[in-house]
Simulated scan of single mutants.
Amino acid sequence: MRKFISVAAFAFVGGALREALTLIPLVGDHYWLICTINLLGCFLLAFVTEGLPAILPLSDVWLTGLSTGLIGSFTTFSTFSTDFYILLRTNQFSWAILYVMVSLFGGLTCAYLGVRLSNRIIHKKEGGL
């Protein structure tokens, strides 16, 4: 029950943060904003699950709330999927393919960088050079 409450509370914050970013008029194009949010989420999810436990003694309840709740609601696969469909439906094939490629390969790269940063922090904490 505690995990459920943690996920729900953090999900509210993550969803509200994503919505707040979409309301800022200076951010630019919706598609690239969603892509940026998702790429940031890939990095943060990898860092939170891999490195944060080595930095802070967080309980499983907190880690689940941060990863599943906060980051899970901050990123949005459903919006990404809908955006891709809209780009295809409006005959913007090049943009649709670019959107998918940047999201997929950028997401994997960001997750990799999050794990690498985590490993560097863990290595430093353990007294490595």
Rank of each mutant, 00 (worst) to 15 (best):
K3H: 07
I5Y: 06
S6P: 05
V7D: 07
A9N: 05
A9F: 11
F10S: 15
F10Y: 10
A11W: 00
F12N: 09
F12H: 11
A16K: 05
L17W: 15
L17Y: 13
L17D: 12
R18E: 07
R18I: 03
A20Q: 04
L21A: 05
L26W: 08
V27H: 10
V27F: 13
V27Q: 08
V27R: 08
G28W: 14
D29F: 07
D29L: 06
H30F: 12
H30C: 07
Y31C: 11
W32R: 10
W32I: 12
L33C: 04
L33A: 13
I34K: 11
C35K: 02
I37L: 13
I37K: 03
I37R: 00
I37E: 06
L40K: 06
G41Y: 09
F43N: 05
L45M: 15
A46D: 05
A46I: 03
F47D: 14
V48T: 12
T49N: 12
E50D: 14
L52R: 00
P53G: 07
I55D: 01
I55G: 03
P57H: 08
P57G: 06
L58Q: 01
L58C: 04
L58I: 02
W62D: 00
L63M: 10
L63A: 01
G65C: 01
G65W: 00
L70F: 12
L70Y: 04
L70K: 10
T75M: 01
T76I: 03
T76V: 02
F77H: 01
S78L: 04
F80R: 06
S81G: 08
T82I: 12
T82P: 01
D83K: 01
F84D: 04
Y85K: 13
Y85H: 13
L87D: 00
L88F: 14
R89I: 07
R89Q: 13
W95Y: 08
A96C: 01
A96F: 06
Y99A: 08
V100I: 14
V100R: 07
M101Y: 09
V102L: 15
S103V: 00
F105I: 02
L108F: 15
L108R: 09
T109E: 05
C110P: 07
C110H: 03
A111T: 14
L113K: 02
L113A: 10
V115Y: 06
R116C: 15
R116I: 08
L117D: 01
L117S: 03
S118I: 03
N119E: 11
R120K: 09
R120N: 09
R120G: 11
I121L: 15
I121K: 05
I122F: 02
K125S: 13
K125G: 11
E126G: 11
E126N: 06
G127Q: 10
G128C: 02
G128Y: 03
G128V: 04
L129Q: 08
L129W: 15
